[in-house]
């Protein structure tokens, strides 16, 4: 069971003079919720962008099981089963909620040009819609199916972002601050859904500032600061780690 699904090794990305990610290594185990935390600007989103193929790393490697995926390009990485969400609500705002999720099913139900041309894609379309409705139901969005995505509340938009990602049936889901904009009840129920996903065998890599969620959900946590690995461990170890407390309180910032 506990096989290593994602191996990040000596990963680095430089923007001009800034080393946004600098020699970062960590391993995500299959079926875990793995937290990636750190103060603002630590390089978490950049790490996601490197794993998901949005950026090419300046150094290091990312392996899915034993296959190198860094530098493949976003849609190719997605086709391997690594799906990410975006920190800022990124949706097809002008399209309906259902259509958003339908785009998410793109890989499972490939559009067929010939079928479209002769008006004969019913079967595949019905399957895609069925899958989309199931995903929407899982995330509790079924009552918004025909709303425009842009009309949703901020919390629901975050949820929809996850639904779009989940619709493709990924091997590992990378979530960038999924809880921002959610009220406490929404956060609570979203935590429940994530635990449910893990129980069904899904692997999640979670970037989040909400410590209740992180501590409550994660099997393991990687802490980064200034693009580097600060420490790694179980939630309890991280909570009481002096370096982590220091990084978050910012004393180290003043020292350097």
């Amino acid at each position: 069971m506990e096989s290593k699904i994602l191996k990040v090794n000596d990963l680095g990305k430089q923007f001009g003079g800034i080393k946004a990610v600098n020699g970062l290594s960590f391993v995500v185990k299959e079926g875990h919720i793995h937290g990636l935390i750190g103060p603002n600007g630590a390089g978490k989103t950049t790490t996601f962008n490197l794993i998901s193929g949005f950026y090419k790393p300046s150094q290091g490697s990312v392996r899915l099981f034993d296959e190198e995926i860094s530098g493949l390009g976003m849609y190719r990485v997605a086709r391997k089963g690594v799906i990410r969400t975006f920190q800022h609500s990124t949706l097809f705002a002008e399209m309906s909620v259902l259509e958003n999720v339908l785009v998410g099913t793109h890989m499972m139900f490939k559009p067929n040009f010939l079928a479209a041309l002769i008006g004969n894609e019913r079967a595949i379309r019905d399957q895609a819609i069925k899958r989309s409705r199931e995903v929407l139901e899982f995330f509790g969005l079924e009552s918004f199916t025909s709303n425009l995505a842009g009309e949703l509340s901020h919390g629901h938009q975050r949820t929809l972002g996850m639904a779009v990602a989940m619709a493709s049936n990924p091997k590992i889901l990378l979530l960038d601050e999924p809880f921002t904009g959610m009220n406490p009840e929404e956060t609570q129920s979203m935590m429940g859904l994530m635990a449910k996903l893990r129980d069904s065998g899904m692997t999640l890599l979670l970037v989040e500032h909400d410590m209740t969620a992180i501590m409550g959900l994660c099997d393991r946590i990687t802490v980064m600061n200034f693009g580097k690995l600060l420490t790694e461990g179980k939630p309890l170890e991280i909570r009481n780690h002096p370096d982590v407390i220091e990084a978050y309180l910012g004393t180290r910032n003043h020292a350097t």
């Binding site: 998901s52 976003m74 849609y75 997605a78 799906i83 975006f86 990124t90 097809f92 793109h106 493709s168």
Partner: peptide
């Protein structure tokens, strides 16, 4: 509308 999101869905 969102080529980045489309790409991350495998398009």
């Amino acid at each position: 509308w969102q080529d980045k999101l489309a790409e991350s869905a495998g398009v």
